[in-house]
Computed example of a mutant assay.
Amino acid sequence: MRQAIHHLQVSTCTRGLVEISGEVRAFVREQRIGTGLLTLFCRHTSASLLIQENADSSVRRDIERYFEQLAPEDPRRYEHDTEGADDMPAHLRTALTHTQLSIPVEHGEPVLGTWQGIYLFEHRRQAHARDVVLHLIGQ
């Protein structure tokens, strides 16, 4: 059994989905582990991780609009506003999604469906540098 760990730095411009599938695949290939388990962990409370459709960008736009309605910026709704009006909605959006993903690795590749991509979901309006930890274990 071998394992490897890597910190993937993801720059975001604003709220929305940033595909990181290519970077994740490159990390897995470099490790030369044929069969195993890849864990991704987002080290933030206002960003999350998703596996989602990567062929039609309208899916991403619909998801973003849905979350805007589900956890809107409305200062009358929230007590917490330490970092601005988008802070508490960002925490709620993270609570409703995932900060960790587990993906099987087979034949040296993450096992994803044909239309699946891996995304960092930025929930804040301003640009951020996000840290996603990749941990691969296998043989």
Rank of each mutant, 00 (worst) to 15 (best):
V105L: 13
A90I: 04
P110Q: 03
L96P: 03
L101D: 02
M88D: 03
L70M: 13
G108W: 04
L70G: 07
T82K: 12
Q100T: 15
L112Y: 05
E73S: 07
D87L: 09
L70A: 12
R65F: 01
A90E: 04
D62M: 04
E73H: 01
I103G: 00
R60W: 09
V111M: 13
V59W: 02
D86Y: 04
D81Y: 04
R77K: 13
H91W: 08
S102G: 06
V105R: 03
E109M: 13
E83S: 07
A95Y: 01
D86G: 07
T94K: 10
T97M: 11
H80P: 02
R77D: 03
R93A: 10
S58F: 10
E79K: 08
G108C: 08
H98C: 10
L96H: 09
S58M: 10
E79D: 08
R61K: 11
V105C: 11
E68G: 05
L96C: 11
A85C: 07
V105W: 09
T94E: 12
P72R: 07
D81C: 10
D74P: 07
V111R: 10
Y78A: 04
H98I: 02
D86I: 06
G84T: 11
H107P: 01
E64A: 14
T82Q: 12
L101C: 04
R60I: 10
V105M: 10
H80R: 08
A95L: 14
A95E: 04
T94L: 05
S58A: 15
I63A: 03
T82F: 14
S102T: 15
H80W: 08
D81H: 15
A85I: 15
I103F: 03
I63M: 14
Y66Q: 06
E83D: 15
L112V: 08
V59H: 02
P110G: 05
T99W: 01
E79V: 14
R76D: 12
M88K: 02
Q100H: 10
T97C: 15
E64Y: 04
H80S: 07
L112P: 00
G108V: 02
D62A: 11
H98A: 13
E68K: 07
Q69W: 06
M88L: 13
H80Y: 14
A95R: 02
P110I: 02
H98W: 04
V59Y: 05
P72G: 10
I63S: 01
S102R: 14
R93V: 11
T99A: 08
E68F: 01
E83P: 01
R76H: 09
Q69S: 12
D74A: 15
E73C: 12
